[in-house]
């Protein structure tokens, strides 16, 4: 009995100690997090709630978020610009350029235009594999410069093969070679996008104008979509993206090239910040051989219809059933190979 009593007292002591410990922990935790919690739990005014509801009910619910993000990015940019000005001096060209760039930042939320459906076509006969599209895309879309995210991958493959498994990305700088073709590959903006179907939080979807977008505020970084994409078109931000202020593109879209958070997925968005306002994507603009064409497939006079009617087209990996909306075709004339002996 005595022994049992001993054990009981021991147990009681242990329980007491544990309870005291947990209590102390809770108190310290609350004390530390109190300020943070108070920020979260601050009372909301009625006007704010009404404003939020109106924004949600309005035509473009992203407008409000775009304004908020614009203010955030401008603040970040100004802080960076101040650093540059400290380093180089207030009178330097870099300083004025950085400040000018920060003031020009616009985060848009342009909605899709009814009746449009953006499609891209690429002439494999013309492409020389120069990779200008891939790098211009990085510049245009404010992609991180440290971990080397590039949305477009240019792949070399034998002309008779055209199998994605046998492609080579490290083909050096001796291109174009005889009997080889170059396939730049990015998001195909599929009609049946498997990446959209697997997203557990509906952070990615297909817009009415055919662009598959990612909502960076909603993405939880689970990377299911990366696994589901048969084209390997999606990239993951492993860290907070770093974009030099002097290379920042101030023309941003909330669902496009707005500065990303760490641990979100990103991909080609057909330069939504340009195309929805009447422009053309950066890759199409920069291509030195004019291999890319971009347009509205519903426009009977547009380039896409012309290509599809005249030359026909094929898609990559049709067996996946994703119905890609990025067409490849063999145009009328081939850019000659680099080496005359080979050609």
């Amino acid at each position: 009995m005595k022994e049992e009593g001993k054990i009981d007292s021991k147990k009681r002591q242990l329980l007491k100690a544990a309870a005291v410990g947990i209590g102390a922990g809770m108190v310290s935790f609350i004390a530390i997090e109190r300020n943070k919690l108070m920020e979260v739990l601050r009372p909301v005014s009625l006007s704010e709630i009404i404003g939020f509801v109106e924004a949600e009910e309005g035509l473009n619910k992203y407008e409000k978020r775009a304004r908020e993000r614009e203010a955030e990015i401008k603040k970040m940019c100004r802080a960076e610009a101040d650093k540059i000005c400290l380093d180089k001096g207030e009178d330097s060209a870099e300083c004025s350029e950085a400040r000018n760039r920060c003031e020009k930042i616009v985060v848009k939320a342009t909605p899709p235009k009814p009746g449009t459906r953006f499609v891209m076509a690429l002439d494999i006969n013309k492409c020389i594999g120069c990779r200008r599209c891939a790098y211009a895309c990085v510049m245009e879309n404010n992609t991180d410069r440290d971990i080397g995210i590039e949305w477009i991958h240019v792949l070399e493959v034998h002309r008779d093969d055209l199998e994605l498994l046998n492609t080579n990305i490290d083909y050096g700088e001796e291109a174009p070679k005889k009997d080889y073709v170059y396939i730049p590959m990015a998001c195909m903006h599929c009609d049946e996008p498997s990446c959209v179907y697997v997203c557990p939080v509906v952070a990615t979807w297909k817009e009415d104008d055919g662009i598959v977008v990612v909502d960076y505020d909603r993405c939880i970084g689970c990377r299911y979509c990366i696994t589901a994409c048969p084209y390997g078109a999606r990239r993951f931000n492993w860290k907070k993206p770093r974009v030099p202020v002097l290379e920042l593109n101030p023309n941003m879209h909330i669902l496009g090239n707005v500065l990303r958070y760490p641990h979100v997925v990103e991909k080609c968005i057909y330069c939504i910040q340009r195309t929805r306002d009447g422009g053309i994507p950066a890759c199409v603009e920069v291509c030195p051989v004019g291999a890319r064409s971009f347009g509205d497939i519903n426009d009977p006079e547009g380039p896409i219809r012309r290509i599809l009617e005249k030359y026909g087209a094929f898609v990559l990996r049709p067996e996946t059933g994703n119905k890609p909306m990025f067409f490849y075709y063999f145009g009328p004339a081939r850019t000659p190979p680099r080496s005359k002996e080979e050609g």
């Binding site: 020389i128 594999g129 120069c130 990779r131 200008r132 891939a134 790098y135 971990i147 080397g148 995210i149 590039e150 991958h153 240019v154 990305i169 490290d170 050096g172 700088e173 001796e174 291109a175 174009p176 990239r235 993951f236 492993w238 030195p288 051989v289 850019t335 000659p336 190979p337 680099r338």
Partner: peptide
């Protein structure tokens, strides 16, 4: 038209 210069290699993975 003759092909232009080819830019440096791409990053395959981060």
């Amino acid at each position: 038209m003759e092909p232009l210069s080819i830019l440096p290699k791409q990053n395959y993975v981060a």
